[in-house]
Computed example of a mutant assay.
Amino acid sequence: MPKFLHTADWQMGRTYSRFDTENGSALVEARYETIERLAALAAEQQCDAVLVAGDVFDAQTVSDRTIRRVFNATRGFTGPWVMLPGNHDAALAESVWTRAKRLNAIPENIHIALEPGVISLPEQGIAVLAAPLTQRHTYGDLTQPFDDMQTAPGLLRIGLGHGSVQGVLPDEIDASNPIAPNRADIAKLDYLALGDWHGVKEINPRTWYSGTHEPERFRNNDAGYVLIVDIAQPGAMPEVTQRETARYQWHQWREHLSVPSDLDKLLNRITQLPEASVLDLKLNGTLTLAGDRKLTDVLSVAEARYRSVTFDRTGLQLEPTEDDISALHADGYLGEVVQELRERQQPTHADSDAGVARDALAILAGLLTPNDTEVAK
């Protein structure tokens, strides 16, 4: 029973400019670690081959060091690998692949599909029909030649492509590199391994996107997995198993707060995240001063605990309760300032700058609220 691992969209060499240097570097390193993890998984599962369906590299201009590190990371699986150029690392006349060859960086067990055709792996019982991109964008279906490609009897016919299955993915994805949704049937493929969509997605029982091995953006599309594919014999239906490889989980939350229970639920969710989390939080609504202090404390702890925490509180409006005001002991002039800042958060205020007013009110509340040490004295 031939078995192989299907992965894609590594995009090695990408950077994370939206993050600070420390976090960006950690996210880059995670992508190498995850290649090592999937190589070890392929060995553990006794896979016959690993198929990488395009975009191994993020750009043609990645450094020589990146090229060498990528191939070094594959050493945990000594069986055959087949790597397909995608739109980010297309098989141009001069490309990242030709540079890798000049560097002598490509191990003997790794096959690079620089031209359309069949890569036969008879010992593994697999014939890989490859459709590499030779330019970044095409407007014809590069998998169409699969229909006429001949393979040896007894070998699985496994297609390897990179592009957009038409009529299935979002419209904005369908602009280039089209792939017919029924290609596996027309070309009599046992399985069509695809890349370009960065999450796991089943098109039909014989056609799958594996997604990227390590999430790199805030999108809830099942990124961070590889697929283990078992096919008993030519013509048999594939058994596809999704296996997690991700080092980090990415979460993007957009929350509206209106009552205290909303805040309590949010804080509980934050504290329950695994440490290997990347969190992007944007809040709007209203918050009491006591609630604002609780939120600040939890976010402070989260910033130290998780890989990265970014948050936007500009949509929050502070609405002190009577208890809040009483706790501040803001009488006389200070009471008038608190009231003025409350009013300036309203969008109807003539000179409204809600963000500045909210921040000023939070700072003033922090200054007026006695801390535990002062109370003890």
Rank of each mutant, 00 (worst) to 15 (best):
E239G: 07
A100C: 06
H88C: 11
R217W: 07
Q242E: 05
W253S: 07
Q242T: 06
I173Q: 10
E340Q: 07
P122V: 03
G332H: 06
I231E: 05
G224T: 02
L160K: 02
L114I: 04
P347N: 07
T286E: 13
E214G: 07
I35Y: 07
V298S: 12
F71L: 00
R37I: 00
C47K: 15
D147V: 12
V52F: 08
V226F: 01
N87M: 05
L341K: 13
R183K: 10
A49Y: 07
D141N: 13
A357Y: 14
T138D: 11
H162Y: 00
H251I: 03
R206Y: 02
N221Q: 09
G125F: 14
Y209V: 04
T310A: 11
Y209Q: 04
A376T: 13
T143Y: 06
T212R: 12
N23F: 14
R293D: 14
V240G: 01
E340I: 04
A40Y: 08
T314G: 04
R157T: 03
M149P: 13
G13Y: 12
L169K: 00
D89Y: 10
P347S: 00
A223V: 04
D141R: 13
P170W: 08
L295Q: 01
D185C: 13
V168Y: 04
T138G: 06
V229L: 10
H162P: 01
H162G: 04
N284V: 00
D55R: 13
G117R: 14
V240S: 02
D297L: 15
V62F: 14
L27G: 12
Q46A: 09
G54L: 12
S258L: 14
N72E: 12
V301I: 12
S258A: 09
K101W: 12
Q135S: 04
N109V: 06
T21H: 10
D312T: 06
H137C: 07
R65Y: 07
G161R: 02
E33L: 13
P122I: 13
A276K: 14
L103G: 09
L103N: 10
A131D: 01
S326N: 15
R75Q: 14
D196E: 08
R254N: 08
P238N: 00
E244S: 11
G159V: 08
I119K: 09
E216Y: 10
A42N: 15
D9G: 06
G125R: 11
D222W: 02
E214D: 02
L92C: 00
R102E: 03
A40K: 13
Q346N: 15
H111L: 10
R358L: 01
A327M: 05
L192A: 09
T288C: 03
G199H: 02
I173K: 13
H111Y: 15
P153A: 04
V62L: 11
L5C: 13
W197M: 02
D292S: 15
A49D: 12
R183F: 14
V337D: 00
Y333E: 08
N87G: 08
P320F: 04
D89T: 11
N23S: 15
Q252C: 01
